[in-house]
Write a protein that binds this DNA or RNA. Structure first.
Lengths: 328, 328
DNA sequence: CTGAAAGCGCTTACAG
DNA sequence: CTGAAAGCGCTTACAG
């Protein structure tokens, strides 16, 4: 910038004005500065700008896995809202590891992101307290923060699971299995709570062998599903606790001799093209991201809001698998 | 940092040493500094650090759509390699708009990312020349750069499509349709070239009504597919030019009275669970991201490499739909 | 082992 | 309409 000023024969401030399109520069001066910028190949350094202005126009997003299709629309929605506010997005995966979540979130804070959106992997977020106090707007999505007061935007996991299980009960099922994520994960326990509530509401007992919470790679989920489907009193329907589980269960059911009813939490592409179509409790991932980021920018705009818990409704989508009657 | 130094009764440089874990500080001094950091809630400002050091330890990624499942694994692979080198990832979607790609790429450069990975939407990247000259390592992925010399990592689009179409021909088809993306997109024309090569190699004529290149939302693709499947001499097989097209074609075929063979470019989840399973030409999206980012960090490490074109092989995955014989 | 001075490239607050 | 001075929060290069 100094070089540009020298070459154009003007002061630093004038170059700054031209670069930022500020008023108060003669057309002639502006032209000279522009020329100098071109010939010198000048490119403004935003780091220096940030250092002076305080704001970075950057939002950080910590999610579980950039490759998980569930987070794609959420990621994109956050980007779109950020873009509408002129901000860029730095994001990274926690890989469901609390320590990695922490490192990533703190690295983003050190870069002075204006705001932080976190899909929590851990259950203790007190490490963010100094950052929040220092002015980093923070919103949690999909799961609540642990041990701190903060905004959270999530789906109605309890109600969605309850409705999905009630749907299976309405189709005549009495022995219904539940396969969900690790109990450390809030959504998993909420959905299990919904399952129990639906069963209780219909006066149905729950045999604890029908319930599994644990890691959701294909192998252990398949084992759990097959176990529930064997023995003298197998379940006649399954409720899958998330999209990863659902896909594995569909694979297991394809190899079963008799039809087994299935409702899954989370919608997924092509669910309607399978035979039978897979009935799901759909949540709106894009809306989660949009609402969270809107909230973030409200805070950045100076709104003095108390920490809120915003719950988005889910939607039951019947497609066939959830309407199958119990096998004789 | 000044406050910390004052409170600990040391110089600025000593605080800097402690914060960065540099040697040459007495344990006692270090303790005093640490205490001051804690009580004052000091957090290092990386913007200032960057301004001084020159490197930002940040990589920028411009892709087409953060929500597209094809790019999820690529995105994650880039992140993992960057993370292994201690760098964070800023990314954004071009939405297949050349102007938006340009804005995004230049915004990333203004933030002084160390390197840039671009999945091109446009076909003229001369706007990046000053940046590359100024030292921004740049690698293109999935599609080559336009009008500049630069590294590019892509799949063997020509060979993959040729093999896929040859596979359909081997099953007995002679009238094969091709539905691909907009001709502005390099992968689309390469795959079409593969289609034509396979047809020519078997001495089969191509009726131009069997070929459509254009936008790939569901509606126009469905129209094109239905058109090819109607009339007195309908195609008996379809080659779908990418995963978006394949999904739509599967939907159209589900409503067709007679079986139509299908091979799609790009693999997708659940392709094996559909009936028939969808045969595809699979490319390794994660490998694309990994190889590109490795190349980027080689450049950042100072390797003096000429611009290269790295082509990754594709793999034909037969699952049923591509092995269907022509309907009688 | 420790620290004072200069500078990274911008913007802010002023003065002319 | 224009510009000189000070400063954002660090690190570098040096001296003690």
């Amino acid at each position: 910038m100094k070089d540009v000023a020298a070459r154009a024969g003007v002061g630093l401030k004038t170059v700054s004005r031209v670069v930022n399109g500020e008023p108060g520069v003669t057309p002639d001066t502006e032209r000279r500065v522009q020329e100098a910028i071109e010939t010198l190949g000048f490119r403004r350094n935003d780091s220096a700008r940030v250092l002076r202005k305080g704001r970075t126009a950057t939002v950080g997003l910590v999610l579980e896995d950039l490759a998980d299709p569930f987070y794609g629309p959420l990621n994109r929605a956050v980007e779109e809202v950020a873009r509408a506010h002129g901000a860029l997005l730095i994001n990274g995966s926690s890989a469901e590891d609390p320590e990695r979540e922490r490192e990533l979130a703190l690295a983003l804070c050190a870069r002075r992101v204006d705001g932080l959106i976190v899909i929590p992997a851990g259950d203790d977020h007190r490490y963010l307290e100094p950052e929040i106090r220092a002015g980093v707007a923070t919103v949690f999505v999909d799961r609540p923060a642990g041990r701190i007061e903060a905004d959270v935007v999530l789906s109605d996991n309890f109600g969605g699971a309850r409705d999905g299980v009630a749907h299976l009960i309405a189709a005549g099922h009495r022995r219904i299995g539940f396969i969900g994520d690790h109990p450390r994960i809030h959504t998993a326990t909420e959905r299990l709570r919904g399952y129990r509530a639906a069963m209780a509401a219909s006066g149905l007992p729950v045999d604890e062998s029908w319930v599994t919470l644990g890691p959701t790679p294909p192998a252990p989920v398949a084992v759990a599903a097959r176990r529930m489907l064997s023995g003298p009193e197998p379940v006649t329907a399954l409720f899958a606790g998330n999209n990863r589980v659902t896909v594995t269960v569909v694979r297991v059911l394809a190899a079963e001799p008799r039809p087994v009813a299935l409702v899954g939490f989370d919608d997924f592409e092509l669910a309607d093209l399978l035979r039978p179509g897979v009935s799901v409790v759909a949540q709106d991932a894009a809306a989660l991201g949009r609402v969270a980021t809107d909230r973030l920018f409200q805070r950045l705009a100076g709104a003095d809001l108390p920490p809120a818990r915003i719950e988005l409704p889910t939607r039951l989508v019947p497609r066939g698998s959830g309407e199958l009657p119990p096998a004789a």
